[in-house]
Design a protein around this nucleic acid. Structure first.
Length: 424
RNA sequence: GGAGAGAUGGCAGAGUGGUCGAAUGCACCGGAUUCGAAAUCCGGCAUAGUGCUUGCACUAUCGGGGGUUCGAAUCCCCCUCUCUCCGCCA
């Protein structure tokens, strides 16, 4: 949520920066609502002040045993005008705040301006894609040939866009998760948290999934939602909290399944594990002082990169342009891992600074040195998407004999073994 | 699932219709005292919003929503959550 004060003070500047995102702000509507709000609010408050003053006089008079009927008549006369003014004001406020909830964050000044992903800026490439003598096979072929990856059975149990993994593949998936959590907690200073996988609507509003993106979520019959990312439960830890300044920064990491309806993605990435209704992710979340958040974004992105480096997977870092930014983000770096079978880089992590956008929705604050509560800045990033990392390992570490080498850092989690082979 | 109790400022906790935005204590901030600190004393100290003469005034907020009333933290209704006991249970 943007600061309403900013819209009041400089609406045209806000509209201009949103235009960079490809979002058109209905400034005329906002200005009209604001004018109406202002008029109604002053009138309502005047009437309330009058009522309060008269009511106090009544209490005073009655306390002294005087007759207060004249005063009571006067205040009764205010009744209807006051009530209608209050109702009108509430309507305007509701429309205004409803509107405000659907306005995305403003891009940071360092974000490249552009319409869509073609304007994203590649910052660096790390690692060199391996050369394959034969065309590289994709993870589906590799996994199915090993009898460890089973889509048909997953479809039978659930529906399409689910997966069943067996044996060494399931273990490799678990190994990746453990390795990521261990790295972030032991080397990067994060505290591991275990969180609910379903959350209420307030939490979804806090991080920005609601009210605009309900169709992307799985809603349960008790009014709750399956989490689309650990960002939601973890970030909402600080909703409605005032954090002592000395506790910042707070760095948390969680491993959770993520559930996405993938509405509107029919036909996209239908093959394999790239786009699923359910996938695991290790997510890093940071709560920081406003002045530290851009430094924190660089660090957090580095923490995600460290996983790819240790796994020796080639990747590149991309700064999303204004038109490709997510709703709540002020700035985002995507990490894209090399997938030889697709001969391209695919997103495996997204690291964002939300500035105060989520904090304002959540009323997440810290007590500053001035002893006044101020909004914190929130950040998060995948460290990493486990399913896609598994895909990257299978494809980049595939062997000519159909097996898969196990990256060195994962071997301790795989019983010391160095290769996955077909079991006869 | 059943029965009961409860939800008040950063925390603890008083307040059952009228200068109550809320006693008191703790924490915190400023000052006095001190060589310095502790202790003590004095003062300050919720959040959000509105208006304008930018320092003041006003409004709203005592779990959430609705109602009664001239007036609600206080009375009534609904909801949510917490605690205790019972039942069930990985």
């Amino acid at each position: 949520m943007l600061d309403i004060q900013l819209l009041r003070k400089d609406l045209s500047a806000v509209a201009q920066r949103l235009a960079d995102r490809g979002v058109t702000l209905d400034t005329a509507r906002i200005e009209a609502l604001e004018a109406e709000r202002k008029e109604n609010q002053t009138r309502t408050q005047d009437l309330q002040a009058k009522r309060n003053q008269l009511s106090k006089q009544i209490g005073f008079a009655k306390g002294k045993g005087e007759d207060a009927s004249a005063l009571m008549d006067e205040v009764t006369g205010l009744g209807d005008a006051l009530k209608s003014a209050e109702e009108r004001l509430a309507d305007i406020q509701e429309e205004l705040s409803g509107l405000l909830m659907t306005i995305p964050n403003l891009p940071h000044e360092s974000v490249p301006v552009g319409k869509d992903e073609s304007a994203n800026q590649e910052l660096r490439r790390v690692g060199v894609p391996r050369h394959f003598p034969l065309p590289a096979r994709d993870h589906v072929e590799i996994g199915e040939d090993l009898d460890l990856l089973d889509f048909p059975t997953a479809v039978k149990i659930a529906t399409s866009r689910f997966v069943l993994m067996r044996g060494d593949l399931a273990r490799l998936h678990r190994a990746l998760t453990q390795f990521m959590l261990d790295t972030h907690t032991q080397e990067h200073g994060y505290q591991e948290v275990y969180v609910p996988f379903m959350v209420n609507a307030d939490s979804m509003r806090g991080t920005g999934q609601l009210p605009k993106f309900e169709e992307d979520l799985f809603k349960l019959n008790n009014g709750m939602y399956l989490i689309p990312t650990a960002e939601v439960p973890v970030t909402n830890i600080v909703r409605d909290e005032i954090i002592p300044a000395e506790n910042l920064p707070i760095k948390l990491v969680a491993h959770t399944p993520c559930f996405r309806s993938e509405a509107g993605s029919y036909g996209k990435d239908t093959r394999g594990m790239i786009r699923q209704h359910q996938f695991d992710k290790v997510e890093m979340v940071q709560f920081v002082r406003p002045e530290d958040s851009y430094e924190a974004l660089e660090q957090l992105t580095g923490h995600a990169e460290a996983i790819l480096k240790k796994l020796e997977l080639p990747y590149r870092v991309v700064a999303l342009c204004t038109g490709d930014l997510g709703f709540a983000a002020a700035k985002t770096y995507d990490l894209e891992v090399w997938l030889p079978a697709q001969n391209t880089y695919r997103e495996i992590s997204s690291c964002s600074n939300y500035e105060a956008f989520q904090a304002r929705r959540m009323q997440a604050r810290y007590r500053s040195e001035k002893n006044k509560p101020e909004l914190i800045h929130t950040l998060n990033g995948s460290g990493l998407a486990v399913g896609r990392t598994l895909v990257a390992v299978l494809e980049n570490y595939q062997r000519a004999d159909g097996g898969v080498d196990i990256p060195e850092v994962l071997r301790p989690y795989m019983g010391g073994r160095s290769v996955i082979e077909r079991e006869e």
